[in-house]
């Protein structure tokens, strides 16, 4: 049986490769080195690769105050894959000086609020319910142990205020998302976004 010249050459190359007896210790060392490099590259990637969403948004978001972003368009798209299916209100928070208080209303389905850390983790997220207004009050505290002032009880005053939920996070971005429901709903959407507040709390 005669083979095609190309097949003959491939067969000869295969035989030649099969005749090589690799040093198994070298192969094992190469695989181990590949594994170590793979792990190091994967773990180092978040620090080495470009600018994160937090880095990109920080210049346009003043600290501890809410910015209602204009509708997302090709000319005004601060992040890749930031889609115009929702309108955004954002607050860059930092609890280094004082806890940050957050008050927000989610007036229907499709609305959501999420706290994103600089690494992109959502430390808190909530969504709106159908035909119901969900009011949320959050108190963002630093994640480390630190004295943040006396409680009203320790000052001899009964605290009758409603307690907000507590979330621990040093810094990040709070994003309120309001769904695009068409032109007729724009005033309703913008009013909902403007109700979002994010302010540092004064020490007692």
């Amino acid at each position: 049986m005669t083979l095609h010249p190309l097949a003959e050459r491939a067969l000869a190359l295969f035989k030649k490769l099969a005749s090589i007896r690799p040093d198994l210790r070298l192969v094992a060392a190469a695989l181990a080195a590949m594994g170590i490099l793979h792990i190091c590259a994967t773990l180092a990637a978040p620090m080495l690769m470009g600018r994160s969403a937090f880095d990109r948004l920080s210049p346009i978001l003043p600290l501890n105050s809410v910015v209602v972003l204009p509708p997302i368009t090709p000319e005004n798209q601060p992040l890749p894959f930031l889609t115009p299916d929702v309108r955004y209100a954002m607050c860059r928070y930092d609890t280094a000086q004082a806890p940050v208080g957050l008050s927000v209303q989610l007036p229907g389905k499709g609305w959501s609020v999420a706290l994103h850390t600089p690494e992109g983790d959502n430390v808190y997220a909530a969504t709106g319910e159908d035909e119901r207004i969900t009011s949320l009050r959050l108190r963002i505290l630093p994640s480390d142990e630190r004295f943040m002032g006396l409680t009203p009880e320790s000052l001899g005053v009964a605290d009758t205020s409603e307690k907000p939920q507590v979330v621990r996070s040093a810094r990040g971005i709070i994003v309120l998302r309001a769904p695009d429901r068409g032109h007729a709903y724009v005033p309703f959407t913008e009013a909902g976004l403007r109700q979002f507040t994010c302010t540092p709390e004064k020490p007692r």
Partner: peptide
């Protein structure tokens, strides 16, 4: 981190 997106 590489894509630089803000996901839920």
């Amino acid at each position: 981190a590489r894509s630089g997106t803000l996901n839920l």
